[in-house]
Amino acid sequence: MPKSHKKKGGVSPDMNMTPMIDVIFQLIIFFMLVNQIIAEQLVQMIVPELDEPKTVEIEEDGRLIVNIAPSPYNSDRGIGELTIPGEATLVKVGLNDFSIDDIDAVKAALKEAKESADAAGQPLRILLRADAALYFEAVQPVMQAIASAQIQTVHLVAYLPEDQR
């Protein structure tokens, strides 16, 4: 007959923490990566704020963000403050940075994205994310580049209504 544990002073119960720590580490890595990927596609800027906005959230499937940003970003600037110079300096297509002067490279990148989306049979949703203070003439060459890649529609990014955030 086995000896009772009581005679040895009892066994202290131990919880096996290893699986829990594994799962938590996986979660931490997941959140870190997701944060990183989203942040890399977004250039820091102030997008237009609209009167009675009709903006909607765009599906993530086939989404390609095209950023047009003035430089440098001023973190003290408030939403709706349009006093900065309206010239663009940077165009970012997905994860690739281009100078605004190198519009041919932007066109090539967009054409490549369109061709690969067509080859995969997936839709390509272009989100045009431009700073509110930019002049229209700074945004227009990029819109033409998008149109030249046989992309007819574009989604203009602005702030969502308060109740949808």
């Binding site: 903006t55 045009l128 529609t153 203009l156 209504p161």
Partner: peptide
């Protein structure tokens, strides 16, 4: 930040 408080309206070019 899955949703950054931004939305979009669809436009033709």
């Amino acid at each position: 930040t899955f949703s950054v408080g931004e939305g979009a309206i669809t436009a033709k070019l």
